[in-house]
């Protein structure tokens, strides 16, 4: 015969306590002669009773003062938030997915019984449960990059990439020492950054994972350098500084979030969803701060035009371009001013 389990659950639906019953009848109430004794001032001495019948279970109300209510398993998911037990409006049959038990009601495994301020989940021992989740350790990816030679390979690539960027931005042939100094500057920054995270990791996990931090920080730099110019391209194609700024901020936000989340994952035991939340909020703060500073720092009066002058090489440009006439028509709006009567 199936056993009956009654779980006392919190508002959130999580279990606070449970009791297993194997008899044919489970009496519930505040009195000490019940099978399940509930210390809730709103529960009657003999509040209700669960009985086994052929092919199922019924719940009977024992003329309790505040009544007995059932949230069916299917309704329970949806009504969890607002069906918190409280002073019950006895005038209504059903409230927020709850059904009042008049005499007796058939109940099923998973239904929630509400008496007074107490919620009980009725479960049969054969109730199906979800398969166990895999324990999420430091992910395979981080195990992969926690290797000395891989991390230094990445650092060396970053070293060369920073030199290449410096080369792209110059209009003279730069001396070799310039590339070295830029690369070394970058390397030091990444090493210090990774060092700080390793220290945090050592404090928390007693293990530094320096190579993993180093690889992750370097990857961030590499990806950022390669995909950030997309924002330029997008703004150029649409002739919109706002689009360039939004795309740039978005890329920056996503990448910084990933950077911080990754470091937290390696260095701490924080649950993954908190890692992501912390990373997203932190990076959002950085981005918002940057944008606010940019706009706050803008002078009220700028004596020269603020030209959106981004130009990129004509690879793959598809914009056909307006005629002079169309452009002049579009630009007529720059002459419009409030109360100007145009």
């Amino acid at each position: 015969m199936e056993k009956v389990i009654l779980e006392i659950i919190k508002d959130s639906g999580r279990r606070a306590d449970y009791t297993i019953f194997s008899g044919l009848v489970v009496r519930i109430g505040r009195g000490y002669d019940n099978d399940l004794i509930i210390s809730d001032a709103h529960v009657s001495e003999h509040h209700c009773v669960i009985r086994i019948h052929e092919g199922g279970f019924t719940l009977e109300d024992l003329s309790s003062i505040n009544g007995t209510w059932v949230i069916a398993k299917s309704a329970e998911k949806n009504s969890r938030r607002f069906a918190s037990p409280g002073p019950v409006d006895v005038g209504k049959k059903s409230q927020g997915g709850k059904v009042k038990v008049d005499q007796s009601l058939r109940i099923h495994s998973g239904d929630v019984i509400v008496i007074g301020h107490t919620r009980l989940r009725f479960i049969l021992s054969g109730h199906e449960i979800e398969p166990a989740k895999l324990i999420v350790g430091p992910s395979a990816f981080f195990e992969e990059i926690n290797s000395v030679w891989k991390s230094w390979l990445l650092v060396i690539s970053a070293f060369f990439l920073s030199g290449a960027v410096e080369h792209q931005e110059s209009y003279k042939n730069l001396p070799f020492s310039k590339f070295i100094s830029v690369g070394i500057g970058l390397m030091l920054t990444i090493l210090v950054w990774s060092g700080i995270w390793s220290f945090v990791g050592w404090l928390i996990k007693r293990k530094a994972y320096f190579s993993a931090h180093l690889s992750w920080a370097t990857l961030f730099f590499l990806v950022m350098t390669i995909i950030y110019p997309l924002a330029d391209q997008l703004g150029y194609m649409t002739s919109s500084e706002k689009i360039e700024m939004s795309a740039g901020s978005f890329i920056f936000w996503i990448l910084i979030s990933m950077l911080i989340a990754g470091h937290l994952m390696i260095a701490t035991y924080i649950a993954r969803r908190y890692q992501i939340a912390v990373a997203v909020v932190l990076s959002m703060t950085v981005v918002v701060f940057g944008i606010v500073t940019y706009y706050a720092g803008k002078a009220e009066f700028i004596p020269v035009p603020d030209l959106y002058s981004t130009l990129v090489p004509p690879y793959g440009r598809v914009v056909p371009g307006d005629s002079v006439e169309q452009f002049l028509q579009k630009s007529a709006k720059i002459f419009l001013t409030k109360g100007n009567g145009h």
Binding site: S239, S240, E241, F301, I302, V304, P305, D306, L307, Y308, V319, P320, G321, D322, S323, V324, F327, K330, S331, K333, I334, T337
Partner: peptide
């Protein structure tokens, strides 16, 4: 007043 600008491609 401040400048207002329109940016675009022209043929």
């Amino acid at each position: 007043k401040n400048f207002k600008c329109e940016t675009g491609f022209v043929n």
